[in-house]
Structure formats: C-alpha cells, structure tokens
Amino acid sequence: MAEANGGLQIKPMDQFMVKPLFGGDTVGIFTITNVTLWMAMTVLAVTLLMVVGARGRALVPTRGQSMAELTYSFIYKMIEDVTGRDGVRFFPYIMTIFMFVFFSNVLGLIPWSFTTTSHIAVTAVLALSVFITVTVLGFVLNGASFLRLFWVDSAPLALRPILALIELISYFVRPVSHSIRLAGAMMAGHAVAKVFAGFAAALGAAFFIPILAVTALYALELLVAVIQAYVFTILTCVYLKDALHPHH
C-alpha cells in the first residue's frame, strides 16, 4: 500500500516482525530471534527489580528495595482483595504473569525494541493457560458444582437457560478477549506512534507537529502499558475467583 502514495513510506507493521538475530531467513522453533532477545531483557528486568533491588534485606528499605516491596504488596493485595484469602497460594503464578506482561509492555516502548506482548501468539498462550488452569482448577476444587457458575440462581426460572447460554458463551470468549485486549492495545499504540513518526518524516519543515503528537502519544502509551498489565493481572484474579468461589 505504501507505493500507492509515492513518497510517504509508512510501514507501521514492520516493527512487529519476528527476525532471526544471527542471520538466516527461516524462523524455526529454536531460532534465536528478537523475541528471544526481548524476552531475555524481560527476565533481566525482573531480576534487577525483584532480586537485585531487594538484595540488601534492609529493615529500612533503599529505593530499589522499596520498589520491589511495593510491587510485591500491590499484587499481593490485589489477589487478596479480588479472590479472597485462599487465592494467595497462587501468588507466585500471578506475580509471574504480572511481571512478564508489565516488563514486556514497558520495554516495548523503548525505540527500536520489540514488543513481545503485541503478538497474539504470546498473549493467546498466556490467556489460554489462565483459562485452562481456571477451568481445571474449578472442576478439581468444586467438582460438578462448578457448572453452577453458569446457572444464575437469582434469575427467574424461565430466564435461567438463556442466561446459562449467555454465561457459557461469555466464559469461552474470555481467553479471546483476554489475549486480544493486550495484544491489540500494544499493537495499536505502537502502530499509531509509527504512523505519526512517518508523518514527521514526510512533513519536512512542519515536522514538530507530529513530533509533539508522538510525545503525547508516548505518555499515553506508557499509561496504557501499565494499565494493560494491571488489567491482564486483575482479570486473571477475577477468573481465578470464579474457580475458587463459583457461586455468585
């Protein structure tokens, strides 16, 4: 489509390409790609924040330790608030999801970086693992009474089958919306930023207008990156609550 309008060469989707890092064109399953690099950066960031930051074990925390503790307490409190006290045993899993999504989103905002969470493959695996875990856990903990999640007792009897159908559909749509929300938000922001940056290159002397727009957009994207990580995590907690307490 770029050829259609001559000089304006905006390819907003290029930044999402998976490329091998060390030559070669084919992307096999074990190929070291930019996905590998930026996921490794995520691991590094998690280690820096949670392990190196808290290494002092100081009673009066340093700045780094304070950040690690705040992150810890934030997620801990979220799980406690949403799922109740018995959800706390899933704390490491939810913390893992939050740290991965958060750092993938934020590191993806670095120019020339690669946003792993903008790929549906990544978010779909995360969302599906949450979905399968919640479903299996629901049946293991509650047996067949987990199905009462779909049978709304408070509704009139005539409406209940219809509501059950709606609940069932919305239950199976969960992993779709859960994954596409994150990937879509990440992709949209980055693509729009790229489009505006392309305008800056094409406008010549008036370049500063799109640059200002990109700056504002970048601030918004930072907010979106954090909020999407928060939302992904809190929705995981909400789904987990259904498995732990299926009765409305």
Partner: peptide
Amino acid sequence: TFPNQIFWLVVTVVVIYMILSRVALPRI
C-alpha cells in the same frame, strides 16, 4: 513464527517463575 514465539515465551515464563518463586518472593 508461532512455534518460535511460544517456545521462547514458555522458557521465559518458566525462568521468571523460578526466579520469583525460588529467590525473590520468599526474600521480599
């Protein structure tokens, strides 16, 4: 590119889980 991404995602998540559950979370 899906197998590649999913493979590295699983590796990453497992590594983060190990770091968090073995070292970071008990310490904090």
